[in-house]
Design a protein around this nucleic acid. Structure first.
Lengths: 335, 335
DNA sequence: ATACTTAGAGCAAACGTTTACAATAGATAT
DNA sequence: ATATCTATTGTAAACGTTTGCTCTAAGTAT
């Protein structure tokens, strides 16, 4: 077992109170001579503060628990970077907990692990909590914020992109490039977190404004996965109707891209693709995928700021269009 | 503040001892009638065990701290899956800490965060600890294991692939495919963790056994990054000498692949590529990258097993050759 | 000389658990 | 009737910290 303040107290002859004050920098309660002695002894004994004890007595904690899906949401890293940055600035610590992949039990374990010890609060990264688990969380009185997920219900705090705007901007961009038959693929529009529904709404709005009549085949729902991209493209291929498609995630985009490659459909010459997310994956594939790029880093940074300052409010982070190589102007004369 | 066993004791009229025994399932110490009353009251009051208090008194913990680099080591997820699996089986909890990217201070913070609270032990995923931090860790008496990194010094416990074997197998595979001028790119051969040095050694051994004389240009060192792949390919391009290259990571492989695409070098027709790692990235790009595939999941699983059972030993996990689309038989007559 | 302040230090309670030990009552064995 | 055992419960100490309160001695103001 590691040395405790009692050991230091015994060794130096001071009381544990004085040792504690020196070690936790409660200046004004001890002479500098005392401080030197205590600190030296602490170093000599290899003293490590026992945070469990501290948190027990102070009833507060400096650790933020971050709960993430183990599913390959490849943007989590960016969010976590933002979280780490802000946490570091505020002298807070962060621990990350994996909550499985839409796994009720795993979610519950992660939640318990967090709630069963003193923490500052919880940040949930793109995790769509099961109702039972959401109840546990709300009932616990621990502050929490959802990141990269929004809710109709404004009772819950979240920091995310404006998903309707994502759908709208993506669609509008393709329209300005001359496209009229525009698919939207890989998204889930029934989800309780309604990310997909909002994007679809924005998509429809843009279509409507441009006087384009939506055709049901253009919507290919999915679960934001690589596989969703593949099956979506296969559907589009049957009709040979759409000239551009909005992918619900970078992985969906790559699924579409690779299936195009298999079917000898040239991107962007025959089909334009714009994805949603804009992580580094977009620049790893050829052609590079154009994207609606979300500011994941900022989501993490802002969410952490809100948590630390107890800001009871929602926020949207900016989105931006990153033009790369997968969208081409559509010109009727070409056909 | 959440309800405590004292609240339950007061409410039910039992002592905290009895409540504690019921709540932590110390069967044989209470009647089933008592158990029912206590459990109901606990549920009613929304009781959550305070692990900090438990860990304080029992002097033990069921949490495993996993320290990872924030750098895009895209295989960490697989390792973590393995860790989670084993931890779950053994009823242990896991918390993940980010240690920045070769950042001494961030490493130290992550380490302190782990060491300052009761934990079972530490798993370090591909993190190459600064000497000062390694000292902190060893001095702490907390058990720890390195995963995906090996050491000359057998004082340190690790679970990894046999890196010399990786170099050897990759090279031998290319030789059996008819290649003689084989590059090896993106690896660091001075690293204290000597992963790169071992791979290079295996590579040389295979070359030697085949009677091939190594040319210094064939070795293009780097830091396992995408960028390393790009610059390596540029070097090879100048000499137009190698017909196949071993990439030190999937990202290096993709860097090489993309630079080939820019320079109109056809893969695998003009250049074969085999990467080391074999994560899902290999199947995301076109052509898909053949790889020496490591069993990251098993590394995590095994490392956790060792940690839990205090096995003081090292282990290698298996590697396997995954043939995809980036290696082609080399035939002198073609040229 | 007296009263008051202050710097530096210690005492002891508190945080929420667990658990060795003690206590009680009823049951069983002799 | 006595001794022994068992099932259930309680008492209290312990884990490592922090901190309100108290104490002492020296310094300052009057």
């Amino acid at each position: 077992m590691s040395a405790t303040i009692k050991d230091i107290a015994r060794e130096t002859g001071f009381s544990t109170a004085t040792v504690s004050r020196v070690l936790s920098g409660k200046t004004g309660f001890f002479s500098s001579k005392t401080a030197v002695i205590v600190n030296e002894t602490a170093a000599k004994l290899g003293y490590k503060k026992n945070m469990a004890a501290t948190e027990l007595v102070t009833q507060k904690s400096n650790v933020i628990a971050v709960i993430v899906n183990s599913t390959k949401t490849n943007f989590s890293d960016q969010i976590i970077s933002g979280i780490q940055k802000k946490a570091d600035e505020a002298e807070k610590r962060v621990i990350i907990l994996y909550a499985g992949d839409r796994d009720e039990r795993a979610q519950k374990i992660a939640l318990s692990t967090a709630l069963e010890r003193p923490i500052l609060g919880i940040l949930l990264l793109a995790v769509d909590l099961f109702p039972s688990n959401l109840e546990i969380l709300t009932f616990s009185n621990t502050p929490f914020y959802f990141i990269s997920i929004s809710f109709k219900n404004n009772k819950l705090n979240y920091i995310s992109s404006n998903d309707q705007e994502i759908g709208y901007q993506a669609t509008k961009y393709l329209i300005t490039q001359g496209h009229k038959n525009i698919g939207i693929a890989g998204l889930n529009i029934t989800n309780s977190a309604h990310t997909g529904a909002l994007r679809f709404k924005g998509y429809q709005k843009a279509l409507h404004e441009a006087g384009i009549l939506f055709k049901p085949d253009w919507l290919q729902t999915g679960d934001y996965s690589y596989k969703s991209g593949i099956t979506a493209l296969q559907k589009y291929y049957l009709k040979k109707d759409v000239t551009a498609v909005i992918a619900a995630s970078d992985l969906v985009g790559i699924g579409i891209l690779n299936e195009c490659s298999r079917l000898k459909i040239s991107v962007p010459t025959e089909l334009s693709i714009i994805t949603t997310d804009g992580t580094s994956l977009c620049e790893l594939v050829r052609p590079q995928l154009s994207s609606i790029t979300q500011d994941f880093y900022r989501m993490g940074y802002l969410g952490t700021t809100y948590l630390i300052n107890s800001v009871q409010s929602n926020a949207y982070t900016n989105i931006v269009i990153s033009q790369r190589q997968s969208v081409k102007k559509f010109n009727d004369f070409d056909h």
